Computed example of a mutant assay.
Amino acid sequence: MSSVANVFFQSFFHGTRADLKPGDLIVVGYQSNFTDVKPLSWIYFAATLDAAIWGAELAVGSGRERIYVVEPTGPIMDDPNLTDKKFPGNPTLSYRSRDPLRVIAEVTNWQGHSPEQLQQMKENVARGKAEGTAIID
């Protein structure tokens, strides 16, 4: 009788408008989609497709909204901008890293949020910027 080991892998996603291909690295040093602060020293990503969809939908630029399956190349930590500040624990499964993320594949079949949800989120982001509460750690 043979035994089969159950191995579970965690998928991570990054939403953006950047045109990337498998093997490309997403690195620190780019502007946040949510504030006009200096370039970020962290890369943000999530283990839920919904969180990555928000990232793609709110990303600045004129490129097509894209979501990539990514692989961290170094240590990761919970995103403190969401964890315990906006939501107890980390229900959005949002993370950040100072090390690059390697693009594994593009998610090509996903559905964005409704126009009403997207407009509400954009208004919330704009309000945070105006009030100075859209600070990214």
Rank of each mutant, 00 (worst) to 15 (best):
S2E: 04
V4Q: 05
A5T: 14
A5E: 14
A5G: 11
N6R: 15
F9T: 12
F9E: 12
F12M: 00
F13Y: 15
H14L: 07
G15V: 04
G15F: 00
T16W: 06
A18K: 09
D19F: 13
P22C: 08
L25C: 00
I26N: 02
V27F: 06
V28E: 01
V28K: 00
V28H: 01
G29I: 01
G29K: 00
Y30L: 07
Q31L: 10
S32F: 04
N33M: 02
F34S: 02
V37E: 13
K38D: 14
P39D: 09
L40H: 02
I43A: 03
I43E: 01
Y44G: 00
A47R: 12
A47N: 12
L49C: 08
I53R: 03
W54N: 02
W54S: 04
G55P: 00
L58S: 09
L58F: 03
A59P: 06
A59N: 04
V60S: 10
G61Q: 08
R64I: 07
E65Q: 15
R66Y: 09
R66G: 08
Y68P: 01
Y68T: 02
V69Y: 02
V69T: 06
V70S: 00
P72N: 05
P72M: 11
T73Y: 06
I76Q: 12
D78M: 07
D78V: 08
K85H: 11
K85L: 14
N90H: 05
P91M: 03
L93A: 15
Y95C: 05
Y95V: 03
R96E: 02
S97H: 04
D99H: 15
V103H: 01
V103C: 12
I104S: 00
I104T: 07
I104F: 00
I104G: 01
E106Q: 14
N109W: 01
Q111V: 14
H113V: 01
P115E: 10
E116S: 15
Q117C: 13
Q119D: 14
Q120C: 09
K122I: 03
E123T: 11
E123D: 15
N124A: 14
A126S: 11
A126K: 10
R127M: 11
K129C: 04
A130K: 15
A130F: 06
A130P: 06
E131A: 15
E131V: 06
E131L: 15
T133H: 08
A134R: 08
D137W: 12
